Deep mutational scan, measured.
Amino acid sequence: LQLFIKTLTGKTFTVEMEPSDTIENLKAKIQDKEGIPPDQQRLIFAGKQLEDGRTLSDYNIQKESTLHLVL
């Protein structure tokens, strides 16, 4: 599923993930694309901070959802 990642600077980029992927996987993918170390990434969806060990489906993140990346 394609997700939109929006940064505080207003930049938006996309990543391609599976619902079974963990937040950790997502942070690694963001590191590949943007060079931001996972330990500096905080991801927010629907007002909640996402925890590394959980999956996208745990948070009911669907295709074309927008996640906010806070550094």
Rank of each mutant, 00 (worst) to 15 (best):
D32W: 15
L67R: 02
G47C: 04
G47P: 01
E34P: 01
T12R: 09
K48A: 10
G47V: 02
K27D: 00
V70L: 12
A28F: 10
I61D: 02
I44N: 05
T66S: 06
K29Y: 08
L67Y: 03
L67M: 04
E24C: 05
E24H: 08
L50H: 00
K48G: 07
A46G: 14
L71F: 09
P37R: 09
L26C: 02
G35C: 03
D21I: 03
Q41N: 02
L26H: 00
N25S: 13
K6P: 01
T12F: 11
L43S: 00
V70C: 04
I61V: 07
Y59I: 03
I30K: 00
E18M: 13
L56I: 13
T66Q: 07
Q41G: 03
L43Q: 00
Q2R: 12
E16T: 15
Q41F: 13
L50P: 01
E51L: 10
L50D: 00
K27R: 07
I44P: 00
R42F: 12
E18R: 11
T55M: 15
D32H: 14
R54I: 06
K27A: 01
F45V: 04
K27Q: 02
T7H: 09
T7N: 06
L71N: 14
K33V: 12
K29Q: 07
L56D: 00
E34Y: 12
Q41T: 04
E16I: 14
T22E: 02
Q40S: 11
F4I: 11
N60Y: 07
K63T: 13
G35L: 05
I36K: 02
N60R: 07
T7S: 08
P38D: 04
I36T: 10
G10M: 06
L8M: 12
P19A: 13
F45L: 06
P38Y: 15
P37M: 06
Y59D: 01
D21M: 09
L69V: 05
D21W: 04
R42C: 05
I36W: 10
Q40T: 08
L3Y: 04
L50M: 06
H68K: 05
T55P: 06
L1I: 14
Q31P: 01
D32L: 10
E64T: 10
L71I: 14
T7C: 04
L8W: 13
I30P: 00
N60M: 09
D32P: 02
D58Q: 07
Q31F: 13
Y59L: 05
T9V: 09
K11A: 10
Q2P: 07
I61Q: 02
